Simulated assay, not measured.
Amino acid sequence: MPLHSIQRLSPTAVLGLWHLSETPEELWRLLPWQEAYLPLMPATADAVRQAQWLAGRVLIHALSLEIMAVPPTNLVVHNDATGRPWLPGTAHNLTVSLSHSGAWAAAVLSQGGQVGVDIEIIRDKAQRLASKFLAADEWAAAQAAAADSHTHYSLLWSAKETLYKLAAQRGIIFKTQLLLGSFVPQQSGEIPATLVLEGIKTRHCICYSQPAPGYVLTYCHEPAA
């Protein structure tokens, strides 16, 4: 079972990473409540997408054992109309964020609060699309700071994806509502961020790292007030 790591973010939240090497059939055997999950599997998913989908859910169940000694029997990960994962039918106030890319799946599970996580393969796509998701000052800062441009732009895209998931709201414009502050790029660190919703600005902190060669990871957990 390639559960790569579990990191406790707070007394009520954990971050997990899964290094995917199993077939869908092997992952099915690791998944509880198989009868409940069978109709939820995306009908058009190929073997790679099936394995990513299953690994994310196996990971969430593993994280639930870190949050509570006896997970609820009705803990089944669903997706809402936007594709965002959620956990219905539980009285434990669990919130979840899930991401997968290539051979990795990442998840944050928390009792209450807001969570967001994203993992990305480093590639040139984010740099090519920079004008569509970066504000002018963010783009200028990226051009000045990026020694490894593909890594840096992939990190910026991932950070905005995490902030988008934290907001849990449709119709957000990445370029004007998900704003990243200045930071010195390192192997791991924090990025100050601002979320603009209905004219109200809120401040957040996006943590980042490179969990494996060729990948960037970003996440945020904010406990309930």
Results as ranks from 00 to 15, higher is better:
E22C: 07
Q187H: 09
Q34K: 04
I200N: 15
C205K: 15
Q169P: 04
I67K: 02
L155V: 11
W53A: 02
A141S: 14
T44C: 08
Q7E: 15
H61S: 02
V117C: 01
V117K: 01
V14D: 13
D124E: 10
T162P: 07
A62R: 13
Q111K: 04
E138A: 12
Y164N: 08
T73A: 10
R49A: 01
A43F: 05
A13P: 06
A145L: 15
I6H: 10
H204F: 12
V216R: 09
L98N: 00
K160I: 05
V70I: 15
I172F: 06
W33K: 14
P39S: 04
G83H: 05
L38S: 14
P185N: 01
S101R: 08
A168Y: 10
Q111C: 02
T151H: 15
V184N: 14
W53T: 11
A36S: 09
A145G: 14
V14I: 11
I6F: 12
S131H: 08
K201I: 15
Q186M: 05
G199Q: 04
S188F: 09
C205I: 07
Y37E: 00
S149I: 07
P211C: 04
L134T: 08
D46L: 07
L178Y: 02
I122W: 11
S10L: 04
V117E: 01
Q52H: 05
P223W: 02
L156I: 06
A142I: 06
H221F: 09
Y164D: 04
P71F: 01
T162C: 09
H150Q: 13
A136M: 13
V14R: 10
F174P: 02
W28H: 06
L17D: 06
E120V: 00
P85Y: 04
L15D: 08
W104Y: 15
A141Q: 14
W18R: 04
R57Q: 01
G112T: 06
P223I: 02
L40M: 06
L3E: 07
G16K: 00
M1A: 14
W53Y: 03
G189F: 01
E138K: 01
A47R: 09
E25L: 13
P42L: 04
Q52P: 06
M68H: 03
H152W: 13
L129H: 09
T95Q: 14
S101W: 01
W53I: 00
V76D: 09
V76H: 07
L75Q: 01
N79S: 15
N93D: 11
C220H: 06
H152M: 10
A224Q: 11
I119E: 12
L87S: 01
T162M: 03
H152L: 12
G16T: 00
P213E: 12
T151F: 14
E198A: 12
A126I: 05
A36H: 12
S131K: 12
L63G: 00
P24Y: 11
E26V: 02
P185I: 07
K201R: 13
P85F: 03
S188C: 08
K201T: 14
I119R: 11
A136R: 11
N93L: 05
R203K: 09
L59I: 07
A81Q: 01
T194P: 10
V58E: 14
S5K: 13
Y37W: 02
Y215H: 08
W157V: 10
A140N: 12
